[in-house]
Design a protein around this nucleic acid. Structure first.
Lengths: 189, 189, 189, 189
DNA sequence: CATGAATGAGGCTTCATTCAT
DNA sequence: GATGAATGAAGCCTCATTCAT
């Protein structure tokens, strides 16, 4: 693996564990056994590194999402399941990235964040479109606020990044099923 | 209002807008037109101030929650509605506190956080108890994972702190109703 | 003397001897036996200190100049002598400031230099006005380029900051007389 | 043109515009589309480059000057004119070099500057000799301080490097004539 | 000849905190 | 109660230089 990637990988752990602000460049390079100069050879600033992390995360996420939503034959209910599954499943592999994304994105200055925001919106609107399509074709109940439902559903899975432990008792499969069931059928008897 | 409270109020805005780490003691005292010495007369450290904010937030939340759950006659469904309503309603008044609580709590050192964690857990278990009670008495479907459902439901409302704008088109009342409806009945037609 | 002034005085010597860029904040505070924090308590940046030096120099210079030019009865020839004398005389007391002014002014960013540039221009135009007045009233030969003559004359004295040693053989008085004589009468036999 | 010269040419512009200290090796090699290794193949250090610039400037200047002063038939007045003309004329072609020479020479360490200082003195003494010869043969007034007059006259032209714009209204020819006239005849009516 | 990765020292600046008054 | 001068550790970043290839 090249140094630029090594720096990014190491930062993933450090930024998630200690926080972006609380992690110094010195911490990063010490973890790698190199010197500060090396860091700045590959990244022009700490912020650029953060941006690289966030952008990689969200681009990858959207890519996976779009593979799901552009599936030719699946129903919207199935697509919804697949996305929820994907999101939970990725907690295992991308927990660091995701948490950094949610928590540290505010440290990226306005002038550098446009690209990331666009991707984030695209992800949300893709999600919302599944709901809207499902409402139109009768899979889901009609509702005047698909956007609010989308945000609520995102809340369910995003929150998982803060507490879900894939090594615990509940498997990804189970959790995804559980949440899909609640979302589809509710909790009322 | 006394100086200790003034400091806390001002910090609420600053910590939320700029972040805890990004806000200096100087920023805080400048906003109040006092000097640093004053700050340290009322708080022994910046961290103590953060702790005071987080603790006040979570204690207040639990107090409101317990007023709801100890209501003598309401059904669990009604209590659930009331809590969801309360949580969304408080976005309006306690947005700063809430976001600071979620985002900055990690800046409190292990040795000072016990009290806060206990409150947070108490809030979650109170919530969970409503679900369990409702399952027992037949209001809600039986489910082996009331804790996971609780966490999912918390995700819905907690996420709202990041996007919900109480001055926007959708009222607190509407949003609480919408989310309660989804949670109770699901989105499936 | 207050710390802010002490810092400025010390910097005068260091900036002139070693250069602005070559002098570190550490050098300055070490010379004073204080710490870097102290420096930043009094100056918001190294550049602000440089600006303070340059501004004090040029304001003081203009003030002295205007005392000369607004004299009610002196001829323009006399005023010219007085200014040349003043400029050379000040090499003794203000050599550091003057050299810093000439050499380091370029380190002040555009957005902070306006005030200084205005003063510098005022000094030059005041100087030029003596020539113009003297041309009008017959003291000096008419010439279409009083501005170029002004700049040439300024060159003579300003250059002195780089080589003139007031402790040397030639006194301020002598040098001023010599230059005034050359300027008035030329070197031609 | 060879790489060593290309590096020197590029540095001329950069050092003058941004300053020696403010120009990094990276700036230089970026301007040329080469890499740092290349730079260090041709120059052992940044300082060596600066020295090369300064030495080339002053050697060239002395050479031109000596062509003038060793002219077999011209009067000292004519030689003085020629030198002033040359100095102003060179502002057009050698402005960068000249300003770097004046401003940045201090960045050359003591142990490397001897050669340059000798040249600079030779230039000054050559200049002074014209005055002295002219005094002896009656072209110029006798004066006990030909060295001070020399330095004053150098001030006039050297200062021009900071303000004279050859593209402006006044031509090299005009300016040289003007200054020679002031120097020879003075400004007094 | 030329590359480019890596170094390491040093620079400017920030800031929580202390303390004498 | 409150001030404000001073501290000192730490942070981000720059850069001339080296060296294996």
């Amino acid at each position: 693996m090249c140094m630029r990637d090594k720096i990014l990988r190491t930062s993933l752990t450090l930024f998630d564990q200690k926080g972006y602000r609380e992690t110094s460049i010195q911490d990063i390079v010490d973890s790698l056994g190199v010197t500060k100069g090396t860091f700045y050879y590959y990244y022009s600033s700490k912020e650029e590194l953060l941006k690289a992390i966030c952008l990689a995360y969200i681009e990858n996420l959207v890519q996976h999402q779009e593979e799901i939503i552009y599936h030719p034959t699946k129903t919207n209910t199935e697509k919804l399941h697949d996305i929820i599954y994907m999101l939970i499943d990725r907690i295992e592999r991308e927990r660091n990235e995701a948490r950094i994304f949610f928590r540290e994105i505010r440290n990226i200055k306005e002038e550098h964040i446009e690209e990331i925001k666009q991707m984030r919106d695209r992800f949300r609107l893709n999600y919302q479109k599944i709901l809207e399509d499902g409402m139109k074709n009768g899979e889901f109940k009609e509702n005047v606020h698909p956007n609010l439902i989308t945000l609520g559903m995102l809340g369910i899975t995003n929150w998982g990044y803060y507490w879900y432990n894939p090594e615990g008792e509940v498997s990804v499969e189970e959790l995804a099923k559980l949440y899909l069931d609640v979302i589809l059928n509710g909790i009322k008897r």
